[in-house]
Computed example of a mutant assay.
Amino acid sequence: MHTMWKGSISFGLVNIPVKLHAATENKDIKLRQLHKECQTPIQYKKVCPVCEREVEQEEIVKAYEYAKNKFVILDEEDLEELKKEQEDKAVEIVDFVKLEEIDPIYFERSYYISPNDGGSKAYALLRKALQDTGKIGVAKIMIRSKEQLAVIRVYENTLLMETIHYPDEVRNVLDVPNVPAEEKVVKKELDTAKMLIDQLTTEFDPEKYTDEYRSALLELIEDRKKGKKVATAKEKPVPDNVTDLMEALQKSLERAKGDGKETKKKTTRKRKKAAGS
C-alpha cells in the first residue's frame, strides 16, 4: 500500500512514528476529450489574454485575489518555508471526544495509519486506549499544503485518520432555500410512513450496494472495444403518477412488503438447495 505521508502522532509524552495510506480510492471512469474529426486528444494550454501568447511554467507566480483584479503576489520560497514549518511538526492529539458527537457532515477523507520503524508498541498502546475508552482523538495535520483538522479512531484493529472540515467550511444550514417550516403532520400519514421505514429497515451491509452506472459504462466500453453492437436496455416501468401523499405511502408500503416476501422466498430456495446438495 502506497505511503503518502510520514511523520509522528503524539498524545501527552507518547510519540508514535507513523505512515499514512489512503483508505479509499475513487473508481470514477475518466473519459478523455478527443477531436471528433481525427480522434486526437485535446490539449489545454496556459494562455495570457493580455499578452496573447502561451505562458511557460517558469513565468507563472501564485497570488491571492483580495478584491476584484487586486492581487497579493506570494513568493514560492515563502510558501515552501511556511509549508515546511508546519510539516515538521508532529501530529498532536489535542482532545479526546466521542465519535457520535461529530456530525457526519464534517467528515472528508479517510487514511489508514501504520506504525513506522520503532512505533509498534506505542501504536498498540494508543489503539488499546481508544478501544477501552470508546473515544477518538482530535488532531491537526499538514497534508498537501493544507492544515487539516482530523480525528484518529480504531477501525477493525487498525488506527484510522479521518480529515474533517473546519466549522467555517460547513455552509450555514439556514441558507438552504425553501425548507418548510414546522408543519402539522397527519397522524395516519405519519403512522404509514413509520410502517414503511420499519418494512425497509435492515442491517447495513456495504457489499449489497454497487455502482450500477459504472458497471454499465465499463460493459459498454468493453463491447465497443470488441466491436459488438450495443443493445439498448429496456426502460424501467414508469411509476404511477400519484399525487396523494397517503396513496403514495400506501403503494410504497405494499411494494416494500412484496419485495420482502420475494427475498424470503429466494432465501428459502437457496437453503433447500444447499441442504439437498
Rank of each mutant, 00 (worst) to 15 (best):
V94T: 15
Y111C: 06
M142A: 11
V61T: 14
K98H: 15
I73Q: 12
P167G: 06
L126I: 09
G134L: 02
Q148D: 01
E59S: 09
G137K: 03
N116D: 14
Q148P: 01
E100M: 07
L74Q: 10
N69P: 00
L149P: 00
E101H: 14
L82W: 10
S114V: 07
V138S: 04
N178H: 07
L79Q: 14
E169H: 02
E80I: 08
L99I: 09
E100D: 10
I136K: 02
A129T: 08
E92H: 03
K128P: 02
G134T: 05
S114M: 08
K128S: 05
Y112N: 09
A63R: 04
E162S: 14
E100T: 10
N157I: 02
L174F: 02
E80P: 01
E147K: 11
I141R: 00
L149M: 06
Y66G: 05
E77P: 04
M142W: 04
E56D: 10
K146H: 12
E81A: 12
E108P: 00
I105Q: 15
D117K: 14
Y155S: 14
Q131D: 08
E80V: 04
S145R: 10
V170E: 02
Q148R: 08
D132V: 14
R109E: 06
A122R: 10
Q131L: 09
H165Q: 10
E87F: 07
N172H: 05
Q86M: 15
S145C: 01
V97T: 13
R109K: 15
D88H: 13
Y106M: 02
V151A: 10
K84N: 11
I152V: 15
Y166E: 05
E100S: 08
Y155A: 11
E156A: 03
P177V: 00
V91M: 15
N116H: 13
K128V: 03
E77A: 12
D88V: 01
V72E: 02
V173W: 08
N69A: 12
L130D: 05
G137F: 01
E92V: 06
V94S: 13
E101M: 11
L74D: 01
S114T: 15
E147V: 11
E56Q: 13
K140G: 01
E65D: 11
I93M: 06
V94C: 13
K62C: 09
Y123V: 06
S114G: 15
N157C: 06
I141A: 00
I60T: 01
D78T: 12
V151M: 06
Y155H: 13
K84L: 08
A90V: 12
D175Q: 11
V94Y: 12
N157E: 13
D132C: 03
R171H: 12
H165A: 12
Y123E: 03
D175E: 15
Y66A: 07
L160Y: 03
V94M: 14
D103F: 13
Y112H: 12
